[in-house]
């Protein structure tokens, strides 16, 4: 099976899952089997999904604290994946009409609060 390489940015305390000693950030480029999902990437990094908050795939918001409709998203060669710690925040007023993945957009529209909250747990 062919492999893909993805560009992973792990911020704050999550940097340890990228082998960094400080808690600023880590950038790693793991090779994964073609067809790997975001969930598979987390397993490869040994990063428990409940430790992550805001997540981006190629600059598209894909998860927020407590709302993770991105675990099954299939990754492509060269994708940039950014994963934030739970202390990080992005208030609605600064993210409405920002780019998001289709799955995240769908998850938002299904919510009664229309995605205005900053946490979903």
């Amino acid at each position: 099976m062919d492999a893909i390489t993805v560009d992973v940015w792990l911020y704050g305390p999550l940097a340890k899952y990228g082998g960094s000693d400080d808690a600023i950030f880590a950038q790693v480029a793991p090779a994964l089997p073609e067809g790997s999902t975001l969930g598979a990437l987390l397993a490869f990094l040994e990063l428990p999904t409940e430790e992550r908050g805001i997540t981006f795939i190629n600059g598209n918001l894909s998860a927020m604290p407590g709302l993770q409709p991105d675990l099954d998203q299939v990754l492509q060669e060269g994708d940039r994946i950014a994963i934030f710690h739970l202390k990080s925040m992005w208030p609605f007023q600064y993210r409405h009409e920002a780019a998001m993945t289709d799955a995240f957009r769908t998850a938002m529209t299904q919510r009664e609060d229309q995605g205005l909250r900053s946490r979903y747990d």
């Binding site: 940015w9 911020y11 704050g12 950030f25 805001i54 981006f56 600059g59 918001l61 950014a82 934030f84 202390k87 990080s88 925040m89 992005w90 600064y94 993210r95 920002a98 780019a99």
Partner: peptide
């Protein structure tokens, strides 16, 4: 010791950067 008390308002730098904004 929450988000703002730890990282200050500059907690937004990486987030907004990843968002491409």
């Amino acid at each position: 010791k929450g988000g703002l008390n730890t990282y200050g308002t500059a907690i937004l730098v990486n987030i907004i950067n990843e968002a491409g904004g």
